[in-house]
Design a protein around this nucleic acid. Structure first.
Lengths: 331, 331
DNA sequence: GTGAAAGCGCTAACAG
DNA sequence: CTGTTAGCGCTTTCAC
């Protein structure tokens, strides 16, 4: 592997000149430039990024910390973050936490400032004090979950409002026994979505019935199926269900079908996330569609701002747009 | 940020001793060890991985190059590769190519030996000569697509056999007009799956009907839906369809439903990949289930072998197991 | 415009 | 067992 020195020797100039050429410095004698470029070509020189970063005091990499790539929402988000980061020539190092607090914390603590310039974290189970272990020198932006008591940049949609929109849609359909699947004891987003659901019901003069609010400790398809099976076994089953993510909703659709309950005629279903698969489920799924590309770009922009502006800037909370995608499951 | 030197000064020893302690070297005078460990703790020292790697001549990172994380198969595979790599303390840097040859080639060419120790590549559109641009010093293992004429390690399932199993399953069901969706002019896996499909038909004494073989230039749900709609509009529509991946099959299921064709009664459907969503589609999807964890682990193992053994070793082709997952779409 | 040389933080000969 | 030191490949003053 050719180094700067090799190229310099071959071109008969100093490393400085080669470095100048490589880095696009303007003022290089044309003659030298030509010789250097020739030498560059014949050696097939490629800069050692590690060495460059060591010298520059940066790494050129971002960490993206998320629960699991196999979960469609995170797979899609990761892809978009990769694209957004690439626009600024960042490499992205992905870390999975599998949604356990222990691994989220360990990952956060291991985020030394030497491997990465900054991190984008999508936490699922973190407590706010876990952030104490975080190296203060490295900028972090949080996605989704929002711990208000930690002064960290955040980007996401307004979960309360989105949940209200989803629930209102079911109310507008004339549904009156509207269930919710996905309540969770400490997940912040779950709490917010539950609040939006409640406030929509209350605003419409409908009762908030606790037997129609089903907890889900995980948000996988299986959990949605179980919750829906339970709801349909009730003496008075719901005529609509708001699921706190699409996977729960997909599971719910299957449970409804197995129970012989027709969607949307007997029970309407709304999801959250707009996973790609939700446009193709049977029936296709009405869902809250966050602008994921906007989330990815905002996250990368926040990082850039933080790297430039330092840790003194006030933490920012960027709210990205969302829409309600109406499909067969409520039509 | 504390450096080795800082710690050494604080502990009143040389950097060597600190380095020894940090790297778990055994023979350190207990007294010194204690002082160093104290200094380590009070400074909160963390090694600069970049510097260490520069010195050691390695990077501690793998690249994982794939088309798109939002495609379920790749999302799932990426998650498993991350886990497998982590067992050997590798970081994983993910690069998306969006399946275009241009970006696959560019990524391959940019894979300097300075950012990564090795790469796991899941190509979609590469030509064999694109591998010429690859730095010969960096080990690469290919996933899925298999360019026989390039001497590179490969891991994947036996596509021909898997396709034969899938097709045979449909034959065993008594189906006689079995279509295929997903033929592709230069995708190697498509060619292999088509071959397996053909050979199963031929072995059963069934004709290979070209009007029942549908090309798909992309492998998304939409493409499957289009292909299925076409097949169902035929004067003599098929009584079974073998789709070359699950996304195509999911699209096909939807097209069938929209056409009022019942699955599996009128047309049975088999997919390929066993995406998580396929267990929850309506109907759930019979599919070829590659052992994805085995693929991930084999890939990482091949890399380790190659890094130890050098580029002289003969390229290896690891075939990982698969099974046929029988679900409602053929029941 | 360009060269010489220092140094980013670390590891590993080499002495002792 | 531990200290000194060279050097990984690069960028960047500072002279010239």
């Amino acid at each position: 592997m050719a180094t700067l020195k090799d190229v310099a020797r071959l071109a008969g100039v100093s490393v400085k000149t080669v470095s100048n050429v490589v880095n696009g410095y303007e003022f290089v004698k044309p003659d030298n430039r030509r010789r250097v470029e020739e030498a560059l070509a014949t050696t097939g020189y490629r800069p050692n990024i590690g060495a460059r970063n060591l010298r520059r005091g940066r790494t050129g990499s971002l960490a993206l910390v998320l629960p699991e790539l196999s979960i469609p929402y995170f797979g899609e988000m990761a892809g978009l973050v990769l694209e957004a980061a690439q626009e600024h020539e960042w490499n992205v190092l992905i870390e999975q936490t599998l949604g356990t607090r222990e691994r989220e914390r360990a990952t956060l603590a291991a985020l030394g400032p030497h491997m990465i310039d900054a991190a984008i974290v999508s936490p699922e189970a973190l407590h706010s004090r876990d952030f104490d272990e975080l190296d203060p020198g490295i900028p972090v932006v949080m996605l989704g979950e929002h711990s208000v008591d930690v002064p960290i940049d955040h980007v996401g949609i307004d979960n309360v409002r989105a949940a209200r929109v989803a629930t209102q849609h079911l109310i507008d359909l004339g549904r009156r026994r509207i269930a919710a699947i996905g309540a969770h004891p400490y997940r912040g987003t779950a709490t917010q979505r539950l609040e939006g659901y409640r406030s929509a019901l209350t605003a419409a003069g409908l009762p908030v019935r606790h037997d129609l609010i089903v907890q889900a400790l995980n948000y996988h398809r299986r959990d949605g199926a179980e919750a829906m099976a339970h709801l349909l076994s009730l003496p008075e089953p719901p005529d609509a269900v708001f699921c706190f993510n699409d996977l729960l909703a997909i599971g719910a659709l299957r449970a409804a079908a197995e129970h012989g309950t027709r969607v949307p005629q007997q029970v309407a279903v709304v999801g959250f996330d707009n996973n790609e698969e939700s446009a193709y489920s049977m029936p296709s799924l009405t869902t809250i569609a966050p602008d994921k590309a906007a989330i990815a770009h905002s996250a990368v922009d926040l990082i850039r701002r933080r790297i430039k502006g330092g840790q003194e800037l006030d933490p920012e909370d960027v709210q990205t747009p969302f829409s309600l995608e109406i499909r067969e499951s409520t039509r």
